[in-house]
Amino acid sequence: MDLDLLFNASVISSAVRIATPLLLAALGCILCEKAGITNLAIEGFMLMGSFISIAYITKSDGSVLIALLAAMLGTMIYSGLFGLVVIKFQANHVVASIAMNLLSVGLTTFLLQAMLGAQGMIRPANIQKIPNMELDFLENIPFIGSVLHNQSFIVPLAIFMAIALHFVIKKTVYGMNVVSLGESEGAARSAGISVKKVQWSVILLSGLFSGLAGAYLSSVILSEFSMNMVQGRGFTAYTAVIFGNTNAILVWLVTLLFGWAEAIGVQLELAGIGVPSSILKMFPYVLAIIVLIISSVNTKRRKERKK
């Protein structure tokens, strides 16, 4: 197999496109993980975000930009339920996440039927898409060209936010508070950090980011909503956070890796090499599992070295 099939401009371009919602969801998850909250509910948040934006487009004049904002706000409010259960009622994080994911699938399917009158999926005809960025001068530069040219403005926005988050965590008081809370809740409390406030902030922010991720998936990439359309992307994002060791820049690179895995699956299917599509679709998940093993071996070794 020639390498060009795996690394040509269209593969890299679609890898970046697929990686963006993963990265956005992962950003919120990084904050939660730093603050010691296992947030697997981003899967459900993403689904909610993708539903809200399409619902807004269907019910209004179809502006994608406002739909994105609506999705961010709506999902943030929705994530408050997770916060309530986890912070106020101190439920097990994983169990609460599973409940939120179940609830999101149920709620979006129900509202799709009850509010928009559609069974299974909806494709709003009045969608007014935001045109992709036409950066012709970048086209000839090998990597950056395919990363930024002919992409939605959300792609550079997400990358910028990843870098910004990296600095927020490393350099600001808020970031320090989040990190110290994750390291030791008792120490954070005695240092005068309001534990609950920080916990609420990271969960609401993860709702905000995941809402944008879901909205990008449904109304920018696909322009449709279908039942359970997130398909484990939230879990993949969580894997990326674990593998990237909650470092925003590393996490971005890992999401790119996952995006690339999915993109070459599509590419190979189009090229028709005779491998069934369900086997090709497995590739990103298998890659995520391998990546997970490698990262755990690394952390295990690091811990042993410390001893």
Binding site: L40, G232, S296
Partner: peptide, 24 residues
């Protein structure tokens, strides 16, 4: 085995394996 030998996060690994099994 992934948990025992590599100390991987069981939650993530089982969730990801679900998708593999479904596609298989």
């Amino acid at each position: 085995a992934m948990k025992v030998y590599f100390n991987t996060d069981m939650i993530v690994s089982t969730l990801l394996l679900n998708f593999v099994a479904k596609l298989f």
